[in-house]
Nucleic acid binder design. Sequence first.
RNA 1: CGGGACGUGGCGCAGCUUGGUAGCGCACCUGCUUUGGGAGCAGGGGGUCGCGGGUUCAAAUCCCGCCGUCCCGACCA
Length: 566
Amino acid sequence: MRGRFWPTVRDDPADAEAISHKLSVRAGLVRQLAAGLYTVTPMGLRVIQRVEAIVREEMDAIGAQEVLMPVMHPAEIWEATGRYGLAEQFRLEDRGGRRMVLGMTHEEIITWHAAREIRSYRDLPQSWYQIQTKLRDEPRPKSGMLRVREFTMKDSYSFDADEAGLERSYEAHSRAYTRIFDRAGITWYRVESDVGMMGGSGAHEYMAPSPAGEDVVARSADGGYAANVELAVSVAADPAFGDAPDAPEEFATPGVGAIDELVELTGLPPAALAKSVVVVSDDGPVLAIVRGEHQVHEKKLARIIGPHRAAHPEEIRGWFGADPGSLGPVGVDPGTVRIVADPTLRTGHYVTGANRDGFHLRGVVLDRDFTAEVADIRTVLPGEDAVDGSGPLDLVPVIEIGNIFKLGTKYSEPLGARYLDEDGQEQVIIMGSYGIGPARVAMAAIEQGHDDDGIVWPTGIAPFDVHIVLIGDDDSPQGAYAADLWQSLSDHGLETVLDDRPGLRPGEKFVEADLLGCPIRVTVGKRTLPDGPLEVRIRRTGEVHEVPLDSAEDRILALWRGLAGA
RNA sequence: CGGGACGUGGCGCAGCUUGGUAGCGCACCUGCUUUGGGAGCAGGGGGUCGCGGGUUCAAAUCCCGCCGUCCCGACCA
């Protein structure tokens, strides 16, 4: 290790929040260049490369073939799919004024190639992957390596003749991902996900639970149901509504605006109240209605009405004749305001605003007193039951570490990726796309594996398997022994590092070894020679094994196999 | 893009309110002692106080503008 570039730090970086951010900097794995731009050190690179090695093995195992595409692309290809000009897209011109983009993903490029190379059903199926740089002008990079503007991604793309073929390719990737994330040693969930800007007909995300995560998964205890909250659904228990009056009844609610004030005034549970939220879409005002205990989920609503913003109070007064706090759907002209109600409103009767300041209506019934489009627009609440009967849902913050998309013909159609089938008929290729972020896998491992002393790596992706701490000079007897041990362990197939840095005190070496977090630490000092024992410490548990010198390699190898489950 | 905070040797921070010779801890260099959990003593090097304007006899400090970084939100394959 002497002479190795391994810059550790004592203090947490001042601007770090996430544990993986603090520890990846302190353990000398990464260094920041600018917002969302990180350099990976030799030590950090070892971790990334181990993740990538697992990825390559498992991708190769399902017959995917590695390629490497440029990071810079002609703009026209992106224009063909309508994805030129996205806010996150870095754009530039070459010296000839030709418009270029830096790739945020590679659907366009791989499909452009497929369109030129695939001719016949005999050429299908294909799965091509690469591990390569992506650039995205994130509005807000954050949390160290978790959300960055430039990162390496494993992205693969499948090309099939039909939907059944896509299903096979999708399942093959799903199998590979299971093996990859299991081998990486992290806790992960496979969840239903939104197709987002990728488009297509179906998708799953691979999520590593962590407080630093930016996404939230709704999940039943046994994992029977698991979905991104962006599309998660649940069973909301109905309150005791009682009999509905024959028609809505107006009552005075002076000064009442918020739901909790209405709860206090009426004595009714929030679930018997209806919350009215006004937004403005490209096509005009929209009244979104959910029950009082729920929140409108912006993304779900956007899937129904498109991009939208919150309405200004003066706009609301114009449309409803009342201020926010007294709004409701009854009497609203559907020609002026589009009304979208959550399916929970289908049962029961509700208290809503009367569109008259200081008054509400009770006994409001959907389809009797007002009409609305009914669509799922609410966020699920923890404790609500899963729709598949697998029990109450928990809401878990997660890091997205991978995703798989059924793209269908979203890219092959505009880019002309077609083939001739057995009957000589031209058909559009059916595609899938599949991503993994190796650095995110590494950061998720840190989030999930650390203690007060530093990182506790899973055996699959630790920078080294064994960390030998030499106490003493390397020209001492123990120095010679440590060097021999390093050679011997390496010959046994263990990735081993020897800390033979001169001039450091033992305590410093121990502290830095703990910070780095390799699974096994071996201490070689003057206590070791001439008769042993050799101290072997397990990072995860802290347990210390004192092993005799004459069987040291075998014992260490056995301990390693036990840890690695091999 | 909205809200907030911060920018002072490599790192972590104080100094700013009330303008007056830039400081502390760690790290670094030299020497001696020390050496199984971030050593001790002594000596030493290193900072246009983010950048640009302004006020003032005098600006790290007050004012204006800009840039950068982080956090919350919006956004996010």
